[in-house]
Amino acid sequence: MSRNPYVRPISTTTWYMRHGRYKVYVLRELTSFLVMFYSFLTIYGLSALTGSAERWDAFLASQQSTAMVVFHGVALLYFLFFQTFPWFKLAPKAMPVQIGEKKLPDSYIIIGHYVAWLAVSVFILWLAGAF
């Protein structure tokens, strides 16, 4: 009897197509492009803010278009479902809380995140005068 183990090949570029959970994972990781985009868009906005009121208004005007409305709308939904909500779901795994002998149920930590998120969002929108 001789050994001759067989190693199954795996694609390093398309491996995530094999299973639904891998696809969801890749979609989650791709939110990094959105984070980069909005970070630099905000930095670009700050550069306009270093100048006059006219320059700031020109920046605001340059951001106004139907295409951008659609883009931001899709980006918002994508970000919520592939970054914010998954992050909250996984938070109790990285930071478990144990009180005495009992582990605090994950759901408590997750709900706490949602409540804090709503508060933060309302605060930012209020600060920006959205309502």
Partner: peptide, 13 residues
């Protein structure tokens, strides 16, 4: 980003 970006994107919207 999970906490802040939804509001930030909403403002750009």
């Amino acid at each position: 980003t999970s906490f802040v970006f939804p509001a930030l994107i909403a403002l750009f919207l």
